[in-house]
Simulated scan of single mutants.
Amino acid sequence: MAIDLKQYKDIPHGDMPGDKVEIGEEHVKKAQLIMESLKGMLDEVIAKDGKAVITVCGGSGVGKSETASLLSYFLNEQGIGAYTMSGDNYPRRIPMYNDAERLRIFRTAGVRGLVKAGEGTMEHFDTIRKWQQEETDADRSHVSENPWAASYIDAGRKGLEGYLGTTNEIDFDEVSSIVKAFKSGQNKIYLKRMGRTDSELWYEEVDFSTIKVLVIEWTHGNSDHYEGVDIPILLNSTPEETLAHRRARNRDGKTDSAFTMLVLELEQNLLASQAHKAKIILSKAGELLSFDQYKELMNK
């Protein structure tokens, strides 16, 4: 049965400035399915604590913003006040600078790794510089003809692992303080707003006096670096599904850089390491998964 999307066209979305939220039929079906599993869990938490924090996490293009917005909408329709907060407002740097910092860390660690491996010749540095200018220095295919490049890529990867999704990249303390203030019953809470440039940064006072459920939509929503989440929800996609989605979205035919693909892979690894905590796991195809089923799917 087809779903009439008109009623969802103007529903409130998350609070990330400029975030594009396009609700489709698949998002509605997933949100409805989640609501069926969520109801009992939510009733239990609210009965105990008066308020609840849900997080909707997952990788690139899995529909976090759309699904979280719909969950808040459905809860509000049932008379349970809900607000959708975007965790993407809480990195330590604006996106432009954070992207640059990720690349700086990868390249700095890579060059140091090259030196440590005894491969720091000027010839190798010149080749690395050429790849950097081409934005292909994270491409592992270079190793087949240049075995020494493995030292650069492996060290860069390790350096990036020490930054992505950590307290170095994200202000988890601020998110924790918001969750704590919400659960303690604070009626007015200032929430951060972050755009794409350094002039797009401000705070907005949000009225939580009628809100019982805080829905956080965020890749790192299930992270170990902050506390207070009652019901983590994982929207899963396999690496192949994520890649297919990104290829379909790039209508101009431009493919992601090797570095972007490395970032996505490392984020996928983080999500996998945290998946055991999820109370609800939903596949890309819209099927509820147990943790064992999730592991089986990801190990195929």
Rank of each mutant, 00 (worst) to 15 (best):
G63Q: 01
L164R: 01
G110K: 06
I189K: 13
G58N: 03
I216A: 04
D252S: 03
E145F: 15
K9V: 08
M35H: 05
H142N: 02
K29D: 11
E135A: 10
E135K: 03
K284N: 11
K277Q: 05
V175M: 06
M261Y: 04
E174R: 11
G79N: 03
A244F: 15
K130E: 06
S199C: 02
A258L: 12
I34E: 05
K279D: 02
E217D: 03
V215Y: 12
E174A: 09
G286H: 08
F259H: 01
M122C: 11
S209Q: 09
E169Q: 03
I94L: 05
S151G: 05
W148Q: 06
S176G: 14
E134I: 10
L235H: 07
S223V: 03
H225N: 07
N187D: 14
L288R: 04
L5F: 01
G120C: 06
E36P: 05
H245K: 14
V229A: 06
G162S: 01
A248I: 03
L289G: 05
F172S: 03
N236E: 15
R193I: 00
R247K: 13
L33F: 07
S144E: 12
M35N: 06
S176E: 15
E227Q: 13
Y190P: 06
L214G: 00
D252K: 08
G61I: 03
S141P: 03
K295F: 09
N222M: 15
R107D: 02
Y226N: 15
N146H: 09
K183C: 13
Y226C: 11
N98H: 07
G40N: 12
V213D: 00
S37W: 08
D139C: 04
R251F: 14
L288K: 06
L114G: 13
E134D: 14
K300L: 12
G50L: 08
K29P: 01
A117G: 12
V206D: 09
R193T: 01
R129T: 10
G58I: 04
D4C: 09
Y163C: 07
G286T: 13
I46W: 01
G118K: 01
R112L: 12
R247M: 11
A138M: 06
K48N: 06
T210I: 04
L71S: 00
E22C: 08
K192M: 01
M298D: 11
N76Q: 02
E123F: 05
G24T: 13
H27V: 03
I211V: 14
H142D: 01
T55Y: 13
H13Q: 11
T167E: 14
A82K: 08
N299L: 15
E174D: 11
A100H: 02
K300H: 13
K64C: 05
S176Y: 14
S65H: 03
L70D: 01
A181Y: 13
I189T: 07
